[in-house]
Design a protein around this nucleic acid. Structure first.
Lengths: 110, 110
DNA sequence: ACAACATGCAACCAAACGGTTGCGGAAAGG
DNA sequence: CCTTTCCGCAACCGTTTGGTTGCATGTTGT
């Protein structure tokens, strides 16, 4: 829900790798994830916890192991925020361009 | 250049506000930014430093003050990374859907 | 029943982080 | 010339963070 948690979750590179891997290999376990990473299983478990709190992944216990899957829907908000900053920047740029060349060329907006 | 720095820079909410404001008001100074935030000018200066290192903003000294402007081009890489995760997830979803309903409805891809 | 395996929880630790205060120096304005 | 203003640098501080080790619990297979 909160973009705050999403951005915070994506801040760590290891955590991004975890999310990436979970997205690629649905149903993967923490132990399997840790096998391909230079950190311990517990570290991975913590990362998964953070990602889960940001609702970017979800885990389901199946017997003695926990299967994880990606739920990247909250990324939409983060992308929207970034696009907005870019848009604001483009507006500035457009305004600058428009004021620099008020006439000439294509017709002014509106 | 590195998406690492970009994601790290966007992790802090205050820093995101700073970037947002700089994008909206080109040529703003650190002191002006701090006036609209609940932190000191030095804190803002640090945030601008982090954002500058991620190449999301750039400052230019003009007399005794430093004007800041947004350079949000690196956001593209970050957005691309997110889109990729979402795409991988969609692929999984598509594969799941395809395997679940191999026939019927619209023709299968390829 | 028992050994092997996967997980979760808790404590602990060093480093990074966000923030502050204090100070020194350069530009503007009187 | 002197004061004001804006800046950058450095030191310091409490909290968060990424990581570890150790242990207790539940599950699977023989």
């Amino acid at each position: 829900m909160s973009t705050d948690a999403v951005f915070a979750a994506l801040a760590d590179p290891t955590r991004r790798t975890v999310l990436d891997t979970v997205a690629a290999r649905e149903g993967i376990t923490a132990t399997q994830l840790a096998a391909g990473l230079p950190v311990t299983r517990q570290a991975v478990a913590k990362h998964l916890g953070v990602l889960a709190e940001a609702q970017l992944v979800a885990g389901e216990r199946a017997g003695r192991e926990t299967r994880w899957r990606a739920t990247p829907a909250p990324l939409t908000d983060a992308i929207a925020w970034m696009a907005n900053v870019g848009a604001a920047w483009d507006d500035r740029l457009a305004a600058l361009r428009d004021s620099a060349t008020p006439a000439r060329g294509s017709r002014p907006p509106r």
